[in-house]
Design a protein around this nucleic acid. Structure first.
Lengths: 243, 243
DNA sequence: AGGTGTGAAACAGTTCACAGCC
DNA sequence: GGCTGTGAACTGTTTCACACCT
């Protein structure tokens, strides 16, 4: 018998990670239950669901967990569990409303706004990312690229001009940038990470093949190609060993 | 009281995923226990351990689990558990032999050889990867880059000439290439994946922002920048909500 | 004393299976 | 009949805590 906290109960509203139940007579806000966070594993799949939903024909009104599961190569039970964490209502016997679900996921991912992002490191990879047009479609826009090489500063990449590290802090604060990508060589990466943390960045996408160490309130994700290849290598070797 | 199978027991040897105990008098090989696989979570960390080990000063003979833990930002219990799956012996009160541990991890990851890798998609990202020198240090070497755009075929990127998709299959088989990276736009990616699978590739590193569907014996890893940003976005938003 | 190896506990994530609603 | 929502079971991963070795 379902006894869990009702997301969106009649007089409850979700607010900043707390489930708040009503304003009492004397104006106390009473947080009854700490709202359960969406599990990390689920958060990691939300972008995939969103993409799947966006790939559906525009006249498709509803979608079943099985359909979604096929699109992201998972099973339908997982999809249903995941979506249940959003407090989204599917309709039994019918499925999920595509439009509504898309909206919910966009909202939970914070995609109701466009996030400005900067790149530090104007080498091959940084330049390629600066020119890559695909971010805008996902809700992000590259607003700056930085380097400390005087040869590179002032040059143009895509529609951006490479700027000096010295101007990073002020630029970022002016434009409210909170997400940065590090595409420098390894020796520079740690220092850059500290500069970003210092400038108030909240999250970092790190392409330098190393583990960065900054204060834990900065969320860091690593995109580590060598590591990915080595992991693939393990499984290739494994498949050989098994014949 | 430890009663687990002894890795590297005096008369046992590890062979193709089986722990084989001794050759009996009449030449029967007796596989007593199916060798426990290294857990995925551990495999994913092996490249990090390797890098950490390689970053140690060359005169450092041993390393403790705590030291390694700091280098990869994990805790020491996890490090010890992970390393125990390799059947590696640390020495109580001392730590792990750096040289030996490095060798074991390289061997388990299959890095005793250099793996040839090809890239499909000679756009910004593919070109940047082709020029990126960092793979060689990790045991991989880019031996070809492919595209189906006649404008690109024949042009030079780094020290590679872009070749046509038509030559992929034969090239790969001649050179025994089993790992491919897909850096094409989304619409081409699925078809390319099928071509790779068909040409006998064992694993694919997919940079196209979509979920590929090929037969399950092909190991696929996704490097999905938009998705990474969206995940970061979630946590940035979350941190705002909490104040 | 210092540090590994590892059962056992705790936690996280996945899958099952089915009641309940359309 | 179809499909969601979700407890419960299960599987995988992390952490604890301590016996044991050097």
């Amino acid at each position: 018998m379902p006894k869990r906290v009702q997301p969106r109960s009649p007089d409850g509203m979700q607010l900043g990670g707390l489930l708040v139940f009503g304003l009492l007579a004397n104006s106390y806000i009473v947080p009854l239950v700490k709202m359960e966070r969406i599990p990390r594993a689920t958060v990691n799949r939300l972008p995939l669901y969103l993409r799947a939903l966006e790939s559906l024909p525009s006249d498709q009104g509803t979608v079943s967990s099985r359909e979604l599961a096929e699109l992201i190569k998972e099973n339908s039970a997982k999809v249903r569990k995941d979506l249940s964490f959003l407090g989204t209502y599917g309709v039994r016997g019918v499925g999920y409303n595509v439009e509504n679900l898309r909206f919910r996921i966009r909202r939970d991912l914070g995609l109701t706004r466009i996030w400005p992002v900067i790149i530090v490191g104007a080498g091959n990879l940084g330049s390629a990312l600066a020119k890559y047009g695909g971010f805008d479609a996902s809700g992000f826009t590259i607003v700056g690229i930085y380097d400390n090489d005087p040869e590179k500063i002032g040059t143009t990449i895509g529609n951006l001009t490479v700027r000096s590290m010295g101007s990073l802090r002020r630029d970022a604060q002016e434009r409210n940038v909170e997400i940065g990508m590090i595409t420098t060589p390894v020796p520079a990466a740690q220092q850059v990470a500290e500069q970003l943390a210092d400038a108030g960045f909240k999250s970092i996408l790190n392409f330098a093949p190393m583990v960065l160490r900054v204060s834990p309130e900065v969320e860091i994700r690593r995109v580590d190609l060598s590591t990915e290849l080595q992991i693939l290598g393990y499984y290739v070797q494994q498949s050989l060993a098994e014949g």
